[in-house]
Design a protein around this nucleic acid. Structure first.
Length: 268
DNA sequence: CTCCATGTTTAGAA
DNA sequence: CTTCTAAACATGGA
């Protein structure tokens, strides 16, 4: 699930359900998810404290404890946070559970265990340490124009590289390129300024609309490609059967008619 | 049993 | 040096 729109939805979930509640106990079912810290450190940092604020950068979610440090969560390929009530059983695949003093709980769910749990004194330092690019939603047109200058390779792998832009994954890169009408294999150097401008516009617009739909595939606007990203799926615009191919090891879906192989090309 | 999966990292090949 | 591919990680679901 977790690309930028999902993680933003997660952030809001935590914002709404987990802030200001004292952590009385924690349960860690998968210590391997800890990155750079051990269980004792995590326990000591969390117990007796409260989550106070949240922050998101790309696919990383940060939540600050009342005494300073930030809990860092990454959800890998299959993770999500979920608050649940005192009487409810923990959800399946809960790998870390915060048990609040008021009886409620917050679970960090991750079936595939490809996520990451860590601590940092400062999100900006963490982001810098990971080498992440600017958050996809915070990028304005001048910044995007600058970022794409002199870049090479195919557009889709470039969009997905978290060192360039943070937050876009396999599914949403397909969506953004579909909305822009650019083929995923299109070489970045051959995108003219007009193409890049439209790409930036749709990048922002697509992510905003996905967040508005709570990143729920069943609530996405009807002109979205994502619900059609399966064999036999059709283009929401022209109803042509979608095609797919492996790009950088990931399955990419696109409309051969609306996103022709050598589509919008303006020599630079 | 086989194949695929919304992510990241890394080794190797071009 | 950069770009691209495949594999590995862990595990469930089709």
């Amino acid at each position: 699930m977790p690309e930028l729109p999902e993680v933003e939805t997660f952030r809001r979930h935590i914002e709404a359900h987990a802030l200001g509640r004292t952590i009385a106990e924690i349960t860690l079912e998968a210590p391997r998810l800890l990155e750079g810290i051990d269980e004792a450190t995590l326990r000591k940092t969390l117990l007796g404290h409260r989550l106070q604020t949240t922050h998101r950068h790309g696919k990383y979610l940060f939540t600050r404890l009342d005494h300073g440090p930030w809990l860092v969560l990454h959800f890998g390929m299959s993770g999500e946070p979920r608050a649940y009530g005192p009487q409810d059983p923990p959800p399946p695949y809960a790998r870390l559970i915060l048990h609040f003093q008021d009886g409620g709980h917050l679970a960090y769910i991750d079936p595939r265990k490809l996520g990451e749990i860590s601590l940092t004194p400062d999100p900006d330092r963490f982001i810098h340490g990971k080498g992440l690019g600017p958050d996809a939603l915070a990028i304005d047109w001048p910044t995007f124009h600058h970022l794409t200058q002199g870049q090479r390779g195919m557009i889709k792998p470039w969009l997905m590289d978290q060192h360039h832009i943070a937050g876009i994954g396999n599914v949403y890169s397909d969506e953004i390129l579909f909305q822009t009408g650019i083929h995923p294999r299109h070489p970045l150097p051959r995108l003219g300024e007009g193409d890049r401008h439209r790409l930036h516009h749709h990048l922002h617009d697509t992510l905003e609309q996905a967040i508005a739909a709570h990143a729920d595939p069943t609530r996405l606007p009807p002109h979205f490609l994502i619900p059609q990203r399966h064999p036999g799926g059709r283009c929401p615009r022209c109803h042509t059967v979608l095609e797919h191919s492996k790009i950088n090891g990931r399955t990419s879906w696109y409309c051969p008619r609306c996103q022709p192989e050598a589509s919008p090309t303006q020599p630079p």
